[in-house]
Amino acid sequence: MEEPLDLIRLSIDERVYVKCRNDRELRGRLHAYDQHLNMVLSDVEETITTTEEDEETGEEIVSKKTRSVGMLFVRGDIIVLVSPPLRTS
């Protein structure tokens, strides 16, 4: 591996985990990417985590919402981290 983007290149057609800004996570099959890290993913499961504060008790309520999308485009600049599937190495 010479440069970080090689890690992404080696993950083409594999399922990847993509951590985005604003507590948004995507899991899907990587179809394509470019130098900005714009991506096309398919069979995507999107998870959005929100934390709200209970007005009476002041406790933090963490809720996760998930939904499925057949295919989507992710703009590279919202991506924080990409992890390929675990390989035994």
Partner: peptide, 11 residues
């Protein structure tokens, strides 16, 4: 934990 991971430099 992640086996391998890529972090986008702007962050």
């Amino acid at each position: 934990k992640y086996g391998d991971c890529f972090i986008r430099g702007n962050n």
